[in-house]
């Protein structure tokens, strides 16, 4: 109820939020393998975790679910190329005649014992990726260079980064010294049964007769990755397509809008994708 009202009002909330304890409100996540056990073990030993996997396969959803499961607040920072270390750690501000230090999201998470999630870390500048190093080994400290301080991390603090190997480029890659500090969990698109289950759960109003071909078509479309398709059809895209269908768009149009048009401008490739979709829905 509170969540609903907040959505209506657009309420400003602090980034450190304990998950709602109500069991019904837990984010839906369907395990694909042993990722939950691995994550829980890593959390138990407070080891930093790296989530690897293609776009739209459920990394962020997984983390939301885990934060809820472990009852820790989750602080998400989407990294971009202008993200500096002070954006993460904090900076001095002027207030009247004096200067005031303001903590950045990472510092706050470290203090509050939250799970800090640095999404798409490769996009961030190298100086910001390096400051997490002391946090990720036995020291578990965050140095505040400008203040000349160090913060010992809260005992519940955990650092999680996501890393999409597709974005691994000649120019942009995590430094090996950064990479090797993490426990890696590999994600991929879930298998067919799980994918169906996910869609059923996300879009309960979709007819079963449309669900199976949609999932099959999406999986078939994935085979064209590397044949001109940069990003394969994601589970998220399938959920979108299912939503469009549930909203009354014909399957073919819905798939075209959600699975084909966004991923390619190449007419022949689009035609091949449509051919797959048509085969499943004809």
């Amino acid at each position: 109820m509170k969540g609903f009202l907040n959505r209506l009002r657009g309420v400003e909330r602090d980034i450190i939020q304990m998950p709602v304890e109500d069991t019904a409100a837990g984010p839906y996540y369907e395990a694909q393998g042993n990722e939950i056990e691995i994550f829980e073990a890593a959390y138990k030993k407070r080891l930093p975790v790296m989530l690897k996997g293609p776009t739209g396969c459920g990394k962020t959803r997984f983390l939301e679910a885990m934060a809820w499961r472990l009852q820790r607040p989750l602080v998400t920072v989407s990294c971009h190329e202008d993200l500096t270390s002070s954006d993460l750690v904090g900076r001095f501000l002027l207030e009247g005649e004096q200067t005031v230090w303001q903590d950045g999201p990472l510092t706050r998470a470290v203090k509050a014992g939250a799970i800090c999630y640095l999404d798409e870390i490769v996009e961030a500048r190298t100086d910001s990726t390096v400051i997490i190093h002391p946090l990720t080994d036995h020291r578990r400290q965050l140095p505040l260079e400008k203040k000349g301080q160090e913060i010992e991390a809260h005992e519940d603090f955990m650092l999680v980064i996501s890393y999409n190997p597709g974005y691994q480029t000649v120019l942009k890659d995590l430094k090996p010294s950064t990479k090797q500090r993490f426990i890696g969990i590999d994600f991929n698109y879930p298998n067919e049964d799980i994918e169906r289950k996910i869609l059923r759960n996300e879009v309960p109003e979709l007819a079963e007769a449309q669900l199976a071909p949609l999932v099959a078509a999406g999986r078939r479309a994935r085979t064209l990755k590397d044949h001109g398709l940069d990003e394969a059809t994601s589970t998220r895209a399938l959920v979108y397509a299912a939503n469009m269908m549930a909203a009354g768009i014909t399957p073919l149009e819905a798939c075209k809008a959600a699975l084909v048009s966004p991923v390619t401008d190449d007419p022949e490739l689009a035609e091949a994708l449509l051919e797959i979709i048509r085969a499943h829905f004809s």
Binding site: R220, A221, T223, L224, G228, E268, E271, E275, I276
Partner: peptide, 15 residues
């Protein structure tokens, strides 16, 4: 004119 399309379709279905 559609050779690539056919090739893609073959690849998609048969691998």
């Amino acid at each position: 004119e559609h050779q690539r399309l056919l090739q893609l379709v073959i690849y998609a279905w048969f691998g």
